[in-house]
């Protein structure tokens, strides 16, 4: 009976990891599309939207079924609680990817200002956080989450620096306003994605240890 629960739980966990890589890919590729002004790639990201939503729904349904059928306890229950939260965060991340991809299409006609400021670098850092959260979830290894607070501080600092830089370009030339306003928004999206990675880290920490820990 419970071995079946553990088998089923393993399968659902795998689906979460798969959904996680999709969400992260959407985010990563959206910035690639932006950087390379690749409308085709941007379209591809936007088209993944429904796949992501389906995974979210399917995993939620399966997780709830496990609760109904097996009344899981202790770590099993914490794992399911973690999964239910994670899929929401992952959905948010993937959808920010979609939003950035739409901007990428709009900004594909003219060259970028200041090589997209620090957006590509910020994206690398955020994607690495998402990756580490997914790995920590898969291997139930919280050591990968230890420095999330510092990493999040770096992301916040980057967002602010991008914001100030964009203001400067806007002041220099009003023609830059639209483009730079988009950059500032994208930096904000990326910062939110890092926050979601931190929230995932909190839930994974809870899943593994049973303790609640706030990552600030």
């Amino acid at each position: 009976m419970t071995d079946r629960l553990h088998e089923e739980l393993k399968k659902v966990k795998k689906k979460v990891i798969k959904m996680g890589s999709l969400a992260k890919e959407m985010l990563y590729k959206s910035v690639e599309a932006l950087k390379n002004q690749d409308v085709k790639l941007a379209d591809e990201v936007v088209s993944k939207k429904s796949e992501l939503a389906e995974m979210d729904e399917k995993i939620e349904e399966e997780a709830l079924q496990l609760i109904a059928l097996y009344q899981p306890m202790a770590k099993d229950m914490r794992t399911i609680a973690c999964i239910l939260k994670m899929i929401t965060y992952l959905t948010r991340i993937g959808r920010y990817g979609k939003d950035i991809a739409n901007v990428a299409k709009e900004l594909a006609d003219k060259p970028h200002i200041a090589k997209l400021v620090e957006i590509p670098y910020m994206t690398e850092l955020v994607c690495k956080m998402i990756d580490d959260a997914l790995k920590a979830f898969e291997m139930e290894n919280i050591s990968l989450l230890e420095d999330f607070s510092e990493r999040d501080d770096t992301i916040d600092a980057l967002r602010y620096s991008i914001f100030r830089e964009c203001i400067t370009y806007m002041m220099e030339n009003p023609a830059n306003i639209k483009r730079c306003a988009h950059y500032a928004m994208i930096a904000r999206y990326l910062e939110r994605c890092a926050d979601h990675a931190c929230k995932m880290a909190e839930k994974i920490y809870y899943m593994v240890t049973g303790e609640r820990k706030e990552i600030k």
């Binding site: 009976m1 419970t2 202790a74 770590k75």
Partner: peptide, 16 residues
């Protein structure tokens, strides 16, 4: 039932 301290309890409540 949320976070047993002892490994044996964990195993018992998760049915292992």
């Amino acid at each position: 039932f949320e976070k047993p301290k002892h490994e044996l309890t964990e195993k018992y409540v998760t049915g292992v």
